[in-house]
Design a binder for these strands. Structure first.
Lengths: 227, 227
DNA sequence: CGGCGTGCAAGAGCGGTGCTCTCGTTATGG
DNA sequence: CCATAACGAGAGCACCGCTCTTGCACGCCG
């Protein structure tokens, strides 16, 4: 048993090592990750890497899951230490932005354009929805405390679809609040991506953190957070 | 003289033909555009393409500019036929989304992660800012008509930077309105990108247009549009 | 404890890529 | 009319993802 475990442990360690080197390459060289270069850095033949990842896409998928989890972790930990819903909201948003600035290529991997023939496997969705659920939970908590502004209910077919999602993941939240929270999430991701991908150049150069916080507060108001 | 013009015209035609084939490849095969494949489709040697584009990145840059112009054109034309600011806002937003759905890979090229590392030359910014300026113009027009909600002025260093931008491109608009219009733009782009890149799957499946219009109206309210 | 079987790494190789260089050809402008 | 510049083709370099085969070393079980 310990032998089998040893085998498995070595394999797991090697897998992690490949991922670590791949992340380093991602951070320096950009999005076109070269499996051969990773193998060279590890001092092994490129064909050996295929013992651990069936293809370059599979390695990328592993990195994508890690990235989703990392940004989700950062946001969750940042929000955990705060009292009010607004404080949690701001902390989570800043944590996501800080992580994105520290790991721009990984952010691009998950929130940029999907790589060519890449179809996100089911494995990724759990990790991907963590931030969405965190934001939803913050709003839901504020809602229970009566801190969410009253609004007219939604109309339209999409409202029914959203109500179904709400019932499954965030009961007690109305479709309207869900829709507005999604809108807020879009805005936050947009703010981070545009800043990261340089589309903000020549507009706001110095006080980008302040600008982001303003956007973050606007997003919070959009989601119903008062204050 | 006509001879020189003929040369230049042939060169321009060849350049356009290469771009057309490249766009076709982009639409079918995805983002990893192969210069050799384009050359094959044109029945010419790959090296001949380099007479027209110094590198693959330069070809991509040309496609990026075309894409920015195309989506800007679509939005401008859609907005031109409308009366009120809100109608123009909605028309421009839907036009951008329709164009993105019709040309998903080109949308990914301009609003996804930057492909070749950091190649965003000056040539692109003029085309890139067209939609931003269109949205700003709609808000400015509504502002002149007294249809923009009054708000407290911005504070913070980024407000000064924004005021400088406002003075250069959109005089008479306050930094606050500029900031909120940018926030609205982030939200609109986020809504389109998330829908396009499949992150909306299993949430809103049927009435995506209705969902987008809701987001669009929320973005308009964010920018100050009343109604 | 020893031979078996398996997981592993290496190497060669295939077809593809971006890009460069050289070499004829052809059309242009002085 | 001819020097020159633009052009297309081809070979070639270094790299890529991926596959196949071949030794080899080590865990596993009798």
């Amino acid at each position: 048993m310990s032998a089998a475990n040893l085998r498995a442990r070595l394999r797991a360690e090697m897998t992690e090592e490949i991922k670590a080197v791949a992340k380093r390459h991602l951070a320096t060289d950009g999005a076109n990750l070269s499996l051969r270069a990773v193998a060279r850095d590890l001092g092994m033949a490129s064909s050996a890497v295929y013992r651990y990842f069936a293809s370059r896409d599979e390695l990328l998928t592993a990195l994508i899951i890690d990235a989703y989890d990392a940004v989700g972790d950062a946001a969750e930990r940042a929000a955990a230490g705060r009292e009010t819903a607004l404080e949690k909201w701001l902390a989570a948003g800043h944590a996501a932005r800080d992580w994105a600035i520290a790991n721009p290529h990984e952010w691009a991997l998950i929130y940029g354009s999907p790589v060519p023939g890449y179809a996100a496997p089911r494995d990724t969705v759990d990790s991907a929805t963590r931030i969405m659920l965190l934001l939803g939970a913050i709003i839901a908590e504020a809602d229970r405390a009566g801190e969410i502004a009253e609004r007219a209910p939604l109309t339209g077919r999409f409202a029914e679809e959203l109500a179904a999602v709400a019932g499954a993941y965030l009961p007690h939240l109305t479709a309207r609040v869900i829709a507005d929270t999604i809108a807020a999430f879009f805005q936050i991701c947009g703010a981070i991506s545009f800043e990261l991908f340089g589309q903000l150049n020549n507009t706001v150069e110095d006080d980008r953190r302040g600008f982001f916080e303003y956007q973050l507060r606007a997003a919070g108001r959009l989601a119903g957070l008062t204050g």
